[in-house]
Write a protein that binds this DNA or RNA. Structure first.
Lengths: 172, 172
DNA sequence: GCATAACCGACTGAGACAGTCGGGATTTCC
DNA sequence: GGAAATCCCGACTGTCTCAGTCGGTTATGC
């Protein structure tokens, strides 16, 4: 039962964005440097977050990422799913993977893992990014003040509107 | 967030043993056949269960495995730990892995994952094998009736008493 | 002494994970 | 119109774990 670095790093990025909420986009390189994480790798992860409509991207110089919705409205379960696929993947658990159980009438573990799955999901959905950002405390995320394109929760000009046929299954 | 087959199969075996409780040892080949699981692989897993003192083994013809304690006293969290190592492994979560967090004063995710870890553990420790075996319902585990060596919860003649220096860290 | 069981260590193929790399497309600033 | 900073994307790669297999040894019952 291991947590992937994808999930960890991805959530760190989201928390960073939450702490910078309202202050215009934050560049990935800044996050990478501050959190001491590999930039090129983060690009992959944050791509998933964007495709899941959790963050918006702004291209070009002085661009970066910002949360697509207020931090208080983004739960960790969304983040985890976007980053890591369905929770507790296994033939007999979770509404995510609808695989048919190989032992139909007599599966001894079906119910248990369903319960475990649910409690995991509860714990994650009960927490949102604002909570985490707040709990992280400390100084707000370092952020160079600069003219911003008034892009607070701006329309998602990326991804959604780009006529990409949204052929993006929520996760790998 | 994936559940290993180790955990799944191992718990299936334990449930099988729980359903046969009180009826002498059950051979692995029977379990493997009934549950349609690879026998050689199960041998590995059940070895871990034995080293964790969750099952007792009886060698020789008409031997097999039985639970080391009453099913009602074996929680799933024990089983999971024996089979799969610490829950929710990651640098910032759980009392199991005491790794030092790389971002001491400012780790934004420490608390969250701690909470997730705890709720996972709660869910698992709240359930014991007797519950699962009962919930599995259906007919009791198929089991050839045969003379038994009065080995209900017999002293753990294996493993523990064999002067093996117990150099068995709970998991890999 | 033979059949059946637990035990053990070594081996292996496939796939995931954790990145890296090189380039392309956008936007801003000068 | 550059130059620079950013997002964006696909391909590649080494390492490791997972899921099993295999061959052989030891113990027990008949």
């Amino acid at each position: 039962m291991k947590l992937s670095t994808r999930a960890e790093y991805g959530i760190r990025v989201l928390v960073a964005l939450a702490r910078a909420e309202g202050g215009g986009p934050v560049s990935l390189s800044l996050v990478a440097k501050t959190e001491k994480l590999p930039h090129a790798y983060l690009e992959q992860l944050v791509g998933d977050l964007r495709r899941a409509h959790l963050v918006n991207a702004t291209r070009g110089k002085s661009g970066g990422y910002s949360l697509a919705r207020p931090a208080a409205e983004i739960s960790l379960v969304e983040a985890m799913r976007a980053l890591d696929g369905p929770m507790l993947e296994m033939p007999c658990a979770g509404p995510d993977n609808l695989e048919v159980c190989a032992r139909p009438q007599d599966c001894s573990v079906h119910d248990v893992f369903q319960r475990v799955h649910d409690s995991l999901e509860d714990a994650l959905s009960a927490t949102n990014l604002a909570d985490v950002a707040l709990a992280a405390g400390g100084p707000p995320y370092p952020m160079p003040v600069r003219r911003q394109r008034d892009a607070r929760y701006a329309a998602a000009r990326n991804t959604a509107a780009r006529s990409r046929p949204t052929s993006t299954p929520p996760a790998s």
